[in-house]
Simulated scan of single mutants.
Amino acid sequence: MERVGAARELVLGYVHALNAVDEAMRAAIPSLERLADVLSLVRSRRIVGRSGHVGTYSYTVHGAGSRFVCDNGAEVDVDFAADGSEVFDLWRLRWYGLSLPEPLDVTDEDLCAAVRSLQPPLTEVRPGWFSAAN
């Protein structure tokens, strides 16, 4: 059960880091009502570029989401659903764990058990994709 506990802490750390990114981005860009709005701001090319720096984060917008890298190297990659909600899968959770200053490598099986143990506040929005309640 120790491995699932570590995976659970990783998932909670990811959600916490995602919330911190959201807060930092909305503080730096007042026209951002939610993190997903960064996609439209990039596409309009008027307010933010496809990549850049905001506070202690660097960011890159990709396809349906964005990747944020904290000054300590931790990476939070997130996609956005059609309704603008933040969604993530096991790959994004593993990548976050591997990018931590003290990398944490957990199996998909342990991550799956951890995510399922956290429902709620997490919700499986489609098979293999999860969202956190705000």
Rank of each mutant, 00 (worst) to 15 (best):
D37Q: 12
R67S: 07
V48E: 09
S40F: 00
G63A: 14
S66T: 07
G52M: 05
V38W: 02
G52Y: 04
R46D: 05
V69R: 15
V54A: 12
R46W: 00
D37I: 04
T56W: 00
A74E: 10
E75F: 00
R43L: 11
L39T: 01
Y59R: 09
V76A: 09
Y59E: 04
S51Y: 04
I47T: 07
V48A: 13
S40R: 14
C70H: 14
G49H: 07
V76I: 10
S51C: 07
L39G: 07
A64I: 00
V42C: 12
G65S: 04
H62D: 07
T56V: 06
R43T: 01
Y57H: 09
G73W: 04
A64S: 12
S58E: 13
H62K: 15
T56P: 03
R46Q: 09
D71L: 07
V61Y: 06
S44Y: 02
V48L: 13
C70L: 10
F68H: 10
D37N: 08
G63N: 14
G52I: 03
D71R: 14
I47M: 14
F68D: 02
V61N: 08
S44E: 14
R67Q: 11
T60L: 11
A74H: 06
V76F: 01
S44V: 01
R43N: 10
H62E: 12
V61A: 11
S58P: 03
D71P: 03
L41W: 00
I47Q: 13
R43Y: 04
D71A: 13
G65R: 09
Y59N: 09
V76L: 05
V42E: 15
H62F: 12
G49I: 00
V61G: 06
L39A: 08
H53S: 15
V69H: 04
T60H: 08
T56C: 06
V38E: 06
G65Y: 05
R43C: 05
D37R: 07
G55E: 10
S58M: 06
A36C: 06
G73H: 08
R50I: 02
R50G: 11
H62T: 02
Y57Q: 09
R50A: 14
A74G: 07
L39N: 08
G65P: 00
F68S: 07
R46I: 01
G55P: 00
G63F: 05
V54N: 09
T60V: 05
G55K: 10
T60G: 11
H53W: 00
T56Q: 14
S66D: 02
R43P: 02
V42S: 11
A74K: 08
S51M: 06
S66I: 03
D71M: 07
E75S: 13
T56A: 14
R46V: 01
V61T: 05
G65C: 04
R45A: 11
Y57M: 09
G49S: 15
G49V: 00
V54H: 07
C70W: 11
R43V: 00
I47D: 09
C70F: 10
G49C: 08
D37F: 02
V42P: 02
V54R: 11
G55H: 05
V61L: 10
